[in-house]
């Protein structure tokens, strides 16, 4: 009985699927944008790979790029100033850096909303009060918070680097419907080719690096991408270090467990 019912239920689904095959056009739709879209170029960073660690000098440069270029529109709301000590700053430097930012607060006398200089225990302030304000100021585009951006995009840091350095004039054969409209900019690394953000890094020396590194556009893009890996995964060096310790421990355990297993079965294995 079960098999009979099952047989007919199975037939029901199979006919529904056969019918679905008949009514679904087989034509493979070509998404015109896909032909122009490009995958991020590989980016070599110190944090890549299972031995990856951070290059603190690079992170400091990246922070400067963020501070002087990106911070105008993009927040970094998950990061606390105090955490910047991981970049090699001492307490005083972190304090001074935090104080350069105004964070929301209340006036202690009137209770009115106010701002005050940041403290190490504060998070980076967002440049806009909320999404509506951000969209209003940016032609309806919403500059995303950058704290997690390298984890929130396929390609991670390589994507950020490629995007920042990927602005160019639209190719001549680009169909009209894919051409950037007003307020949009052609960038083949962006999902739909046209991004609202104008090229943020445009000229060499836009940021002056304290360590004397030549601030080419590519260098600035690289450094800020490296910095954003840190903001997304500050635990990365520790994670890798613990990882090797744990794997080493487990390797020894596996050998011991295997020997123990063989010895338990020594009198049983007939094959």
């Amino acid at each position: 009985m079960v098999r009979l019912i099952g047989f007919f239920v199975g037939l029901g689904f199979i006919f529904a699927l056969l019918y679905a095959i008949l009514v679904t056009p087989l034509a493979i739709e070509h998404n015109a944008a896909e032909a122009f879209h490009q995958e991020p170029r590989p980016l070599a960073l110190a944090s890549n790979g299972p031995f990856g660690r951070f290059d603190t000098a690079q992170l400091q440069r990246g922070l400067k790029v963020y501070k002087e270029v990106c911070a105008a529109c993009h927040g970094l709301s998950q990061v606390r100033f105090g955490q910047l000590e991981a970049l090699g700053y001492d307490e005083g430097q972190v304090k001074a850096l935090a104080a350069q930012f105004q964070v929301p607060s209340i006036n202690p006398d009137t209770g009115e909303p106010a701002t005050r200089p940041g403290l190490p225990s504060d998070h980076f302030p967002s440049p806009y009060a909320n999404e509506v304000a951000a969209r209003a100021a940016n032609g309806n585009a919403y500059p995303p918070d950058l704290s997690l951006i390298t984890k929130a995009r396929h390609g991670g840091a390589a994507y950020v680097h490629s995007l920042l350095t990927g602005y160019r004039n639209p190719p001549a054969n680009l169909p009209a419907e894919l051409r950037p409209g007003t307020g949009l900019h052609y960038n083949p690394y962006f999902a739909n080719l046209n991004i609202a953000m104008p090229a943020p890094l445009t000229s060499e020396g836009q940021v002056t690096f304290d360590d004397g590194t030549r601030a080419t556009v590519d260098q600035m893009a690289k450094d800020v991408s490296a910095f954003l890996v840190w903001t997304a995964e500050p635990e990365l060096p520790r994670r890798h270090a613990y990882g090797w310790a744990v794997l080493g421990f487990l390797f020894v355990l596996s050998v011991l467990a295997y020997l123990s297993y063989r010895s338990v079965w020594a009198d049983k294995k007939g094959h």
Binding site: F249, V252, S260, S263
Partner: peptide, 28 residues
């Protein structure tokens, strides 16, 4: 019983490996 090594040394070596595995796991 028939298959078990009868000499003490064999037994001790076997006990050692179990003890080592279990202690190492205990550390874990």
């Amino acid at each position: 019983i028939a298959a078990a090594p009868s000499d003490d040394e064999g037994v001790r070596r076997r006990d050692f490996i179990h003890l080592a595995a279990v202690s190492w796991a205990g550390v874990g």
